[in-house]
Amino acid sequence: MRIFRRSADESWVSLIQNYVNVNGKQIVDIGCGGGIYTKSLADMGALHVTGVDFSLEMIKGASEKCINYDNVVFDRTPEDCLMPGNESHLRDCCKSHAFEESNFFRGS
């Protein structure tokens, strides 16, 4: 498998930092793909990031990309999005493609 060495664009990092404090949070990256944003969230100070994606191939590539990150895990199953021992509550913050593809922050 070919692993691309891309990183999150600085404009995305700035957007997240302006609206969300990820420092010390447990985050779920839904639709994580190759793990670019998952890795970036960990780099921004997230306590733990779980990347979830439907594609096993994407999960494999993302796992290899973040192999040196003890606070990042990847899985295809959504139950990993739940906090251990307290399955009724989601983790602190979920990231999806809403930041890139919607007008959420523009108020439309």
Results as ranks from 00 to 15, higher is better:
43 D>Y: 02
17 Q>V: 10
9 D>I: 07
23 N>D: 06
53 D>L: 04
26 Q>C: 09
9 D>N: 10
34 G>W: 12
24 G>Y: 05
44 M>F: 05
68 N>H: 13
34 G>V: 12
50 T>M: 13
29 D>G: 03
39 K>C: 05
32 C>H: 03
10 E>M: 09
54 F>T: 10
28 V>S: 03
13 V>L: 13
47 L>P: 00
59 I>F: 02
25 K>S: 05
41 L>D: 01
43 D>A: 08
62 A>L: 11
31 G>I: 14
66 C>P: 01
41 L>N: 03
43 D>M: 10
66 C>R: 10
24 G>H: 04
20 V>M: 06
70 D>L: 14
47 L>M: 09
14 S>K: 15
13 V>G: 00
37 Y>Q: 12
10 E>G: 02
38 T>Q: 06
32 C>F: 03
59 I>G: 01
41 L>V: 02
10 E>Q: 13
48 H>W: 12
49 V>M: 07
57 E>M: 12
60 K>N: 07
12 W>D: 02
21 N>A: 11
40 S>F: 05
64 E>F: 09
22 V>A: 07
50 T>E: 08
68 N>P: 01
31 G>V: 11
17 Q>Y: 01
58 M>H: 10
18 N>D: 15
53 D>R: 01
30 I>S: 02
11 S>G: 01
37 Y>T: 11
66 C>L: 09
26 Q>G: 00
53 D>C: 05
70 D>Y: 10
41 L>P: 02
26 Q>L: 08
38 T>E: 07
44 M>A: 06
40 S>K: 11
14 S>T: 14
56 L>N: 05
22 V>E: 01
20 V>F: 09
25 K>A: 08
46 A>Y: 04
40 S>P: 03
63 S>Y: 07
59 I>E: 03
10 E>I: 11
28 V>H: 01
15 L>R: 08
66 C>E: 05
12 W>Q: 05
41 L>R: 04
39 K>T: 09
63 S>D: 11
70 D>T: 14
69 Y>P: 01
24 G>A: 06
66 C>F: 03
